[in-house]
């Protein structure tokens, strides 16, 4: 659905007398399949928005190529525009207009006739639960309501692909959960959804596949599960009394499924294993044989933050 090869963009910015060049995006290769929710995860300034703006024909790439829904980004940007929807990071509604007016206008900018545009607007208002506020000015909406209007704008012409730049930033947990449902609904309707986010849990829970971006480059790509498995396997936390800990360590050390073993100061063990689900029964059996009582056992799966950490040497939470 989307294929990019070596997409590049640098900006020149002037700070005082010096001109500095910022390589915002340095050679991005991506493949996004039809009907998936593809996530772009990265810290502030990683180049997510810049990539999206290039794909949405808003800025011209310095180099590289892209095919979007079958249209060539460089040769036929007009066709790309017809096939995509784009919801910018910073909002796109006008204070003094109503949601209905914005929806009708936006549909008509795609060349849709007036009557059809009105029908589509009514349908979108209903789908996004906005009917109640439809004829109020946008400046009176809450952040979540306004974000829903913006997403409705992005899909009013039923594009094949919609780009959502940080659709949930600034929303409370409940509105975020609602937004996730809306986004899943778009996929159910057959749309390919490309979102950017810097929330780990969002990338993990919502996206079918993700690309992790840092400093203008894609550092990892795959399904969240694949990415997490790729790095470190699982960690099994074994809760034990302080007295029982050395014995347990002795019993488990050297077992073939244990890659590495650490003792916690307050008692208990951390076992690094390939696959938690198969390791846990064996750990339980071994401790039982040794006649040791355990207080708890817990499986800790690596998070996307661990993935980010291994790929970039920094934690996403810190950057």
């Amino acid at each position: 659905m989307i294929e990019t090869r070596g997409l590049r963009k640098s900006f020149r910015s002037r700070a005082g007398r010096e001109t500095k060049t910022v390589d915002a995006v340095r050679g991005v290769n991506l493949e996004v399949a039809e009907g998936e929710i593809f996530g772009f995860l990265g810290p502030n300034g990683a180049g997510k928005t810049t990539t999206l703006r290039m794909l949405a024909t808003l800025i011209e790439p310095d180099g590289g190529e892209a095919t979007i829904a079958g249209a060539d980004l460089r040769k036929d940007p007009a066709e790309v525009r017809r096939r995509i929807g784009y919801v910018p990071q910073g909002g796109s509604t006008w204070d003094e207009s109503t949601a209905r007016e914005e929806l009708v206008l936006h549909a008509r900018m795609y060349g849709i006739g007036k009557a059809d545009a009105q029908r589509r607007a009514a349908r979108a208002l209903e789908a996004f639960q906005l009917t109640e506020y439809a004829d109020r000015k946008c400046k009176t909406y809450s952040g979540g309501q306004r974000r829903r209007v913006e997403i409705a704008l992005g899909i009013i012409h039923e594009p094949k692909i919609v780009f959502l730049d940080e659709p949930t930033t600034g929303l409370d947990p409940q509105s975020r959960a609602h937004m996730w449902d809306e986004i899943r609904r778009l996929r159910r309707d057959g749309m390919t959804v490309f979102i950017t986010t810097h929330y780990l849990d969002e990338a993990d829970a919502l996206c079918d596949r993700i690309a992790i971006m840092d400093n203008g480059e894609v550092v990892a790509e795959g399904t969240p599960t694949e990415l997490k498995r790729e790095i470190s396997g699982d960690v099994v936390l074994v809760g034990l009394d302080l007295a029982a800990t050395p014995q347990a360590a002795q019993a488990l050390d050297g077992e073939p499924y244990v890659n590495k073993l650490e003792t916690a100061d307050e008692g208990g063990l951390r076992l690094y294993v390939d696959e938690g689900a198969t390791a846990i029964p064996q750990v339980l059996r071994r401790l039982d044989q040794a006649g040791l009582d355990l207080r708890s056992i817990e499986l800790h799966r690596p998070s996307l933050d661990d993935v980010f950490l291994t790929k970039t040497g920094r934690s996403l939470r810190e950057s």
Partner: peptide
């Protein structure tokens, strides 16, 4: 003001 509100950007992604 329209630029800041994102209205221009939104118009520029359409084929208008």
């Amino acid at each position: 003001a329209e630029l800041r509100a994102g209205v221009i950007e939104r118009s520029r992604v359409t084929p208008i």
